[in-house]
Design a protein around this nucleic acid. Structure first.
Lengths: 159, 159
DNA sequence: ACCATATCGTTATGATCATAACGATATGGG
DNA sequence: CCCATATCGTTATGATCATAACGATATGGT
């Protein structure tokens, strides 16, 4: 059974073992769904010059307050190299400020500028709208279910 | 039943405006979940030199057979500029072949090389394993629910 | 036949992401 | 004190993605 004839079939429609469907794979569905959600948010905040990734960094900082760059990255699911780039762009635009940590010379503490803090405060309602739009094809109970299941898929993150 | 307001408010105040939680936003959860799924797949197929996006292109082509580059892109949720880059990389590695469409001088028809077809056939079982790993924290019924809800979120795609 | 419109593929720019390799700094055990 | 180990931030490379602008080709209405 190792050398199945499936390899020779163009589309594998006749073979029950190739009942595989890309549309039934979590990874693929998650990518499509994220693209949709990302687009919904981007359309609302692009005028303010933020991307979805930048928004999540700002929102997390708004929730939790100042912290080190690496920790901020972990809390939004970004690698150190990635969070660094995002922070640098936000800093260049005067939305974030950085300073060395007093107790640990390795750490870089990230904080808002006044401009940054007021911007994210104004943008959070737009993200709430965008979430509602993304979920619009589900009824409220289904929406809750989806959020709960997604949360459990991701549960092990550092929070 | 409306869910408990389990969100622990730092100040114990019931200010609805501060009830916002990044962790409760679909877009953010979807990004984290996709990263996890993507990592699970990448760990399995990286040895064969494919990325998750490249995998989805190959899998779709395997399911549906030859088609134009733009249509292939739509069927995996990629913009024309994006699917072009992916196809070029796969072509450069001898996994895909392209030829002009006989009936429409604008179209570029994408097809497998033998090497490409046999590679994707061998990789699909790994993707099925990876999907199972991604969903491992949910029971079978919850897994079905999640897939169904995600499918409805994305429903309007060109299929 | 003509023309407005749509589609296809391309180019360019900028942002996002993972990975690997690296130097600098803490930290804890011997 | 010293060293192994871990963590922090950085650099570099390559892939993924959206957007905008563009030329070429189809297509449908008049």
């Amino acid at each position: 059974m190792s050398t199945e004839k499936a390899a020779a079939l163009p589309h594998g429609v006749e073979d029950p073992s190739s009942a595989y469907s890309l549309d039934g794979q979590v990874g693929f569905l998650l990518r499509c769904a994220y693209q949709r959600a990302s687009g919904n948010l981007l359309r609302r905040i692009a005028d303010h010059g933020l991307t979805p990734a930048q928004f999540s960094v700002m929102a997390r900082l708004y929730e939790r307050g100042s912290m080190s760059q690496n920790r901020l990255g972990r809390l939004v699911g970004m690698e150190p190299a990635n969070i660094r780039d995002v922070v640098q762009r936000l800093k260049r635009r005067g939305l974030l400020e950085t300073r060395p940590a007093p107790d640990d010379a390795r750490r870089l503490v990230i904080d808002f500028s006044e401009k940054g803090r007021s911007l994210i405060a104004r943008l959070i309602p737009l993200e709430i709208e965008s979430s509602a739009q993304t979920l619009a094809s589900l009824n409220p109970e289904e929406q809750q279910t989806l959020l709960q299941l997604l949360g459990r898929l991701v549960e092990a993150e550092d929070r």
